[in-house]
Design a protein around this nucleic acid. Structure first.
Lengths: 211, 211
DNA sequence: AAGGTCTTAAGACTATTGTCGAAGGGTCGA
DNA sequence: TCGACCCTTCGACAATAGTCTTAAGACCTT
């Protein structure tokens, strides 16, 4: 009987490109295109061999789609297709049970290799340089006062202003900042701001602690 | 003589899809593919009829590429191809002198229409408000040297390091930085970095659906 | 040739940033 | 209850960042 592969991506051209790659891996399979998470879910009701899922679509944002789909279709291999290049997103997807992670910057060969792995019930993830996870861990190790200060630094405030706003001395602000730099492994506030911005952007869905 | 169209996008599959669209609009044109801003720039040295430019590539982030290319090739029509759907980004691209803006979610028809407009020396932008961004204008007013320096500042480097890397004196670096602050309307490097990051990145807009 | 802008850069300051050592307070286990 | 440990706080000191003035050479436009 015919295999059925579902491609969920809201970019028409990219869907087309993915179709071609899929057609080479799953020879003769029926390829179904969906432009939203809702549409993909509807198609899944008709059964499917595998799902290629974009993380950023109109009606869905981030890894929550993956979580939901994994819960409703635990046996379905899901390959994530995303523009993200962040190792911690790779790791998050893997942890949520995705079968593969294909960055959109991947070449044709990488993509076909990943799809072939999925077809064979295997897994495929990009190289996982875990340094970013270290960064996250370091960021999480900040004390409340340090977090407050870093937040102010991220707004471009001067130490003097931060001291006034938080009603502490400038010396204290500086001391905290030095400690922050140590923990984050940076040597000046620009790098700290850059690192904080990088880790905060495109947050998968870390609503767990931020209540 | 043969026309020459350059496609700069770091995603191989998407490049292929774009090639097909271009081939229909510029009949018989030579299509050159580049996978980085540097490669595109190298190809541009050989002359070109038009450039299709992706905003996020390996060696470049955001609108600064467009700014740089506009400065170096003022007469070249540049069509931006981006995953962004933000009207703010459309407007920014228009203001920076792009000939067209093609969201990756656009269908084949929209894309061909936009490319045809570019071919005819016309413009093509998606629906959006025309609120011109003062910050963008200020950013675009930076001179090449200032842009180089700002780029280094954005990496968290010290003035001393910047001076060494660019083989100029620290005094010069400081002079440029003071000028940059004036133009951008900020008062220290952290704010400059923050502003540059805000304007340069078209984020995935993860806040749209979630609340 | 005159005027403008850009890049480079010096010297002399001022302001801001960052480091170090140290003190006081709170918690927690022995 | 006593340390051991961490968090917060701070002043003194050192380093870096940023401003102002001035100026020279390159380049472009008028």
């Amino acid at each position: 009987m015919g295999q059925r592969i579902i491609i969920a991506d809201d970019h028409p051209l990219f869907r087309t490109a993915l179709s071609h790659a899929v057609a080479r891996v799953w020879d003769g399979a029926e390829i179904v295109e969906a432009s939203s998470a809702a549409a993909a879910r509807a198609e899944l009701a008709g059964g499917a061999e595998a799902l290629l899922l974009d993380l950023h679509m109109e009606d869905s944002s981030g890894l929550s789609v993956l979580m939901d789909l994994r819960q409703d279709f635990p046996a379905l291999p899901i390959a994530i297709v995303s523009a993200s290049e962040e190792p911690r997103v790779f790791a998050a997807a893997r942890q949520l049970g995705a079968a593969a992670f294909i960055p959109k910057s991947a070449g044709l060969d990488d993509m076909r290799a990943a799809l072939a792995a999925v077809r064979d019930g295997d897994h495929a993830f990009p190289e996982g340089d875990d340094s970013d996870d270290d960064d996250l861990a370091r960021m999480a190790s900040l004390t409340p006062a340090q977090r407050r200060i870093l937040g102010a630094v991220r707004q471009g405030l001067l130490n003097k202003q931060i001291a006034y706003e938080q009603d502490i001395s400038e010396a204290t602000v500086k001391a905290h900042i030095t400690a922050i730099f140590r923990k984050l492994g940076v040597s000046n506030r620009t790098q700290a701001v850059l690192l904080a911005a990088k880790l905060d952007v495109d947050q998968p869905s870390a609503d767990s602690a931020t209540a």
